[in-house]
Amino acid sequence: MKLENECSFKETVFENADFSDLELTKGHFIKCNFKKTKFKEARLIKCSFIDCDFMQASLNASVGTGCAFTNCSFIKAGLFGAKFDNCKMAGSNFSEANMNGITIIEGDWSYANFRYNNLKKTDFRKVMLKEADFYGCNLEKAVFTGSDLTGAVLSKAKLYGADLRQAKITGVSFKDVDIKGVHIDVTQAFEITQSLGAIIG
């Protein structure tokens, strides 16, 4: 099946299709099945994917610009070297996905599920990450400068060398987080101390 600019599909099965090197602008997809589909080195511009399933799909080295992937499943998907520039990924599930070398430029990743992923050295600078779930993730040397982590889950995550300075951490519980070696600012030091139950003043 061929995908053309400004195409629109609903509840369509694209399983095992090969869209490698695809260049697509303003495509619109609702509840579509992209399981095991190849999007290697594809370039997607202002496309929207709502409630779509990308389980075990390959998006390695693909580029998404101004796209929306809301409430999508990327379980066990390949995102190696992928780039998401100002994309809305809210509510999507990246459990067991290969996100090594991923590039994220701002955008909204609120409520996303990253559980147990290896996100070492990932740059989340200025990314919206409200209530995102990083439980058990490797976030060593990750950069969160200027990001919004309000209500995010960091329990059991590896954070050594991570940079949280200037990030919003309101509502984040640090009771089960090892903050040794984490870069924080003065304001965050107070918030973290309070989340651990201390009374200041």
Rank of each mutant, 00 (worst) to 15 (best):
K35N: 15
N93F: 05
R43K: 11
R125P: 02
A90V: 04
F69V: 04
I50T: 12
L79H: 01
L44E: 05
L59R: 02
A112C: 15
C72E: 01
S8K: 11
K130S: 13
L139A: 11
I75K: 11
T12E: 15
F34D: 01
C67L: 06
C47A: 10
N117T: 07
V143Y: 11
E131N: 14
A77V: 06
A61R: 11
F69K: 00
M55S: 11
F19N: 01
E23G: 00
D18I: 06
T25V: 07
L79N: 01
M99C: 13
D108E: 13
L129R: 14
K26R: 14
G66N: 05
N98S: 08
K126W: 13
K141R: 10
E131T: 12
E11I: 00
E131W: 12
C72M: 02
M89R: 00
K31E: 15
F49M: 00
L119N: 10
A17F: 15
A61C: 10
G64K: 04
N98T: 12
V13Q: 06
D123Y: 06
L24V: 12
F19L: 04
F54W: 02
D148W: 04
Y135D: 08
Y135R: 09
Y116M: 05
K38D: 12
G107I: 05
L22N: 12
E41D: 13
I75S: 01
S110N: 14
C137M: 08
K88N: 13
K46A: 07
F124I: 04
I50S: 00
